[in-house]
């Protein structure tokens, strides 16, 4: 693999996305919503005279969990199944398929990062104007975890696209993946946990976190923002289960990273054998 080629493809991909309306639209929507949350979270706090940093950031987290996976999955899925044979043309060039894969994912990641950082920057200005900057470490952690989440779902979107091969199917699979991880998975686990005995239910719930990157991101971001106490008794159980708060966070982030690398490896494997 040649890094120069990967960089060239990434830069090409990034330029394609800056020219498409998708990135602009997502960036503006995300910025508008996060600005709204920050404004109402921090300004209306004046009503009772205290700043509500954790609550504001947690609401931002909520926005992230809905929007960022959706954006990443669709962008990942669509960029590998372009119309008019653009991808086929790229694959016809004398470069390795893995280089194309990494380059494209790199470029995609750059565009998603640009769009989300724009929103976080706007919200961050509102927040830092209305607080003493005490919670900004938590905010920085939220931004970092959001970028990690974007990477994971870009990788998943890429994998889905490589499996689906056609644009419409890839889009459908991406939407299903989004629905599954963001909503269905948790409801399913919760439902099963209700019929299990206490101990088994605890093990199921905490193990199930590792099966859903959106959950891992949400839990580690909330720990960064409000500490494990924010989950009440469940937080204490989680810390015990993971063997300590710091160890738990490291474990969650490592698992999250693995969730980004694994789909890329799968996609690379499929792509190598695929007859394009």
């Amino acid at each position: 693999m040649d890094w120069i080629i990967i960089r060239a493809i990434a830069s090409l991909e990034f330029r394609i996305h800056t020219r498409s309306r998708w990135t602009l639209l997502f960036g503006l929507v995300f910025a508008a919503l996060s600005l709204g949350i920050a404004y109402f979270g921090m300004i209306t706090a004046g009503l009772v005279g205290f700043q509500n940093f954790t609550r504001t950031s947690a609401s931002l987290l909520n926005l992230v969990i809905y929007l960022v996976p959706l954006m990443s999955l669709t962008m990942g899925a669509l960029s590998f199944t372009t119309e008019h044979g653009a991808v086929e043309l790229l694959f016809a060039q004398p470069v390795e398929r893995n280089e194309i894969l990494l380059g494209k994912v790199g470029g995609l990641f750059a565009s998603v990062a640009v769009a989300t950082c724009f929103g976080f920057g706007a919200a961050g200005i509102v927040i830092s104007l209305n607080s003493d900057g005490g919670g900004m470490a938590g905010y920085a952690a939220l931004v970092a975890l959001t970028l990690l989440l974007a990477f994971v779902f870009l990788a998943l979107g890429t994998m889905v696209a490589v499996i689906a091969r056609t644009r419409t199917r890839a889009f459908g699979y991406a939407l299903f993946t989004w629905f599954f991880f963001v909503l269905f998975y948790d409801l399913l686990v919760m439902g099963i946990a209700f019929v299990l005995k206490e101990r088994a239910a605890n093990v199921l719930i905490f193990l199930s976190l590792f099966g859903n990157p959106a959950d891992m991101m949400r839990v580690s971001a909330l720990i960064a923002l409000g500490g494990t106490t924010i989950f009440g008794a469940a937080g204490a159980l989680l810390v015990k289960f993971l063997g300590g708060a710091v160890a738990g966070c490291v474990l969650l982030i490592a698992a999250l990273t693995a969730w980004g690398i694994a789909p890329l490896a799968v996609a690379g494997h499929i792509l190598k054998k695929q007859d394009i």
């Binding site: 990034f14 330029r15 996305h17 800056t18 020219r19 990135t23 602009l24 960036g27 004046g46 005279g49 205290f50 700043q51 750059a110 565009s111 990062a113 640009v114 769009a115 950082c117 724009f118 976080f120 920057g121 706007a122 919200a123 961050g124 200005i125 927040i127 830092s128 104007l129 607080s131 003493d132 900057g133 005490g134 900004m136 905010y139 920085a140 931004v143």
Partner: peptide, 29 residues
Amino acid sequence: ERPRRRGFFPLAASFAMLVTPVWLYRKGR
């Protein structure tokens, strides 16, 4: 009392986070 002291660093970092994407985006275009 609401804090009057505003951290300069968070503000600067946020501003950088707002401006850098715009610059990159324009550069890409």
